[in-house]
Nucleic acid binder design. Sequence first.
DNA 1: AAGCTTGTCAACCGCCACCAC
DNA 2: CGTGGTGGCGGTTGACAAGCT
Length: 339
Amino acid sequence: MGRSPCCDKGGLKKGPWTPEEDQKLLAYIEEHGHGSWRSLPEKAGLQRCGKSCRLRWTNYLRPDIKRGKFTLQEEQTIIQLHALLGNRWSAIATHLPKRTDNEIKNYWNTHLKKRLVKMGIDPVTHKHKNETLYSSTGQSKNTATLSHMAQWESARLEAEARLARESKLLHIHNNSSPQHCFTHKSSSTNWTKPNQDQQQLESPTSTLTFSENLPLVITPLGIPTENRNRNDNNIESSEIPAMIEFAVSSSTSSDVTLVKDTEHDWMRQINCPTPTEGNEEGFTSLLLGDSIGRSHSTGKNDEATAAAVDYNYYEDNKNYWNSILNLVDSSPSDSPTMF
DNA sequence: AAGCTTGTCAACCGCCACCAC
DNA sequence: CGTGGTGGCGGTTGACAAGCT
């Protein structure tokens, strides 16, 4: 479309913000909310473009921002989610309360990426450098599985974004108090001075669920990284609303059965052994080779034992991927969103 | 102490999706 | 359906700090 940059009007200031400017912006938003960012600078008496104001607010001035060193837990979460989602910093940020996508991105680029490289792990694929040796084995299934999970996570995040929007609209329609517009990812919302209680997230709960009617899309390669297209989930965008409806409307306990059934169907499709009754392990087992490893240890299935040889490498990475999968399989208690 | 290199991170840029008209 | 406005996202830049020679 070719829109000119928002700051190309003459006379607008760029560069670091002064404390006075911060104060003006903060005072204005606390009193009026940000409303339209485009018109905010003029109303707030700032010689800045709206975009600059929004960035300053979302990355620095917002009251719900935690600054300072990342904890070990946070580091692990970032690495795990990056393995799952790639450079989708905003998506990763939704799982790290009080951290901004910009902060996470910076931290990844300056610390974590280098650390992984030192460990011999490719920071893009999260594979160990000698992993290509195993590329012609069962790894492809594992990678495809992970890819599929990443696709679902993408869809889930889109679902949450949509629900947040709808929720917001609904509240507006219902003439509700402004605090309802404040959500965890406040950069995408109309923030209006919430109090402590109000800052509790009202984000809809969602789960990583699988619609029976949806085609399974398994791509050969794993984690989306380079793409700039945010709808590249290999899932038709028209299908996403259906998935959303399913995921959102079916958050009852009965879903567990459905999810597991569907999961098993899918595992059968890709010729994976499905967990038996009372031995539900699901994706985690698949990815980690647990079920195979278990067969190995019990000696009940010689064919599986032979196949397990190909998966030995995954035993080495078990903890790494297990951590990733724990994020998927469980609902993080410290996160407002759930898989 | 001065100059250079490397690391950090706030801020900017350009593209894209979404929405209203 | 096309167009323009707006906000959000991810990649990149550049100023400053810290460390090294």
